[in-house]
Design a protein around this nucleic acid. Structure first.
Lengths: 233, 233
DNA sequence: AATGATTTTATGTGCACACATAATAACCTG
DNA sequence: CAGGTTATTATGTGTGCACATAAAATCATT
């Protein structure tokens, strides 16, 4: 009855995956407990634990103390996106990355921005607008507000040669960030900068990063048509 | 010199995170090895290992055998998206979910589809077109092809009352999937179905799921304007 | 000095054990 | 029998130890 013994947690994971896919353990069904599986697989309980924990992190198993482990009835696919630097993204494709600063001003932002960033409405923020290029073609338009109270060094940085996208990563620590993806119609401004027709459908990424309770920066990236964000599960 | 002792891996993780954010350990810098940290934190090496492993999985640390552990110089933010059932998504917002099947036919797909799904170009696939509603308003349009050779039961399912989105999750095992997010201009067809102006900017999710080397289904979901996919890092 | 073999070292992982914790099941007790 | 208390149980996690493995550093050889 014993399978050829599984000596590492990956092989245990593979076997459990196989049983789930083969419907030997149906969605919603309770699977044997760790101790039993360990005995069946001929390994320690901690090895089984590690494998099941990894699968639960991927959303394939639901685990609850005492209640046991069951196959997720409605697996919420957990896709992991890598939000890389735009420069890396471009270079990854074998294209040449380019960057062009359009505007750098200290200005009081619209209320929508100060509200989202939880800054006082009268406080001036650093406003950066820049274009990222891939093989000299517009790739993404960056419209960013930086909280200079949180990022003191930003005052002295021109952002002429290094993008805010990149500079902040090195100089502005943050604890967490909120990200939203959406589709937007190109505003006349965006259309001009990206050299696309008015009202083109553009992929947008909005992101606010925080250092504890203080906003660090808020950015909207609007990508040239054809952009796809890819991942896998 | 000893901090108040960290008894569990979460607190070790928190402390490491704190040091990274406080720039005590700068990006790119090598941090002490597990054994030393274990001694400093007053816990076992495996506890430190667990904490560092978790941080590495989040992209904050780079670890290599023998070379040691260093703070990621250019942290690739890893955002985890939960791709849930549309029904759950709608209900989560407190809205009432609705579903309407538009078309269910067995047809030979365009070459672009059979190529992407790696099916023979002459093979007929099940074509489903359906509308998902939120409080009776169009929410997302689903355009799906199902490989009936892989999902035999699909032949007998009408998809009148339960969406393919949901039915497949229960009946079609898959090993992995490719997902792409993009912005598209509404086609006349999509515009009519979603009741939006022609050429509206719409958020689209394309997904192909595979069972080993065989495609299970290919779907494009096009969302009504205003849709945002949110996550955090 | 270039090349290849060997040692050293930090992480990766497995194991046996212990106890913690959450949630269910079983047992009272009025 | 309702309601609360206690026991049981599966997972969660910590510890100390061992050995595996990858990669860098060192040494030996030509």
């Amino acid at each position: 009855m014993n399978s050829p013994t599984f000596r590492n947690w990956q092989s245990v994971q593979d076997e459990v995956l196989r049983r789930i896919h083969a419907r030997e353990w149906a969605p919603g069904e309770l699977i044997p407990n760790e101790a039993d599986l360990a005995q069946e697989f001929g390994c320690a309980r901690s090895t089984v634990n590690r494998a099941l924990r990894a699968l639960a992190a991927n959303g394939l198993l639901d685990r609850r103390r005492k209640a046991g482990t069951r196959v997720a009835a409605e697996p919420v696919a957990k896709a992991t996106l890598d939000i890389a630097l735009l420069r890396h993204e471009v270079e990854e494709k074998g294209a040449t990355y380019g960057y062009h600063l359009i505007e750098r001003t200290l200005a009081v932002p619209p209320v929508s921005v100060s509200a989202a960033m939880k800054t006082r409405i009268q406080d001036a923020l650093l406003h950066i607008r820049a274009l990222h290029l891939s093989d000299a073609a517009p790739y993404a338009f960056e419209d960013r507000w930086i909280n200079i109270d949180q990022v003191l060094d930003a005052r002295a940085e021109t952002f002429q040669s290094v993008s805010a996208n990149e500079w902040l990563l090195k100089h502005a620590p943050y604890t967490h960030g909120d990200i939203a993806f959406s589709a937007v119609q190109a505003t006349p401004d965006q259309a001009r900068i990206l050299a696309v027709p008015n009202n083109s459908a553009l992929f947008a990424i909005d992101r606010i990063t925080w250092d504890d309770a203080h906003s660090v920066t808020k950015v909207r990236l609007v990508f040239a048509p054809g952009y796809q964000l890819r991942t896998s599960v």
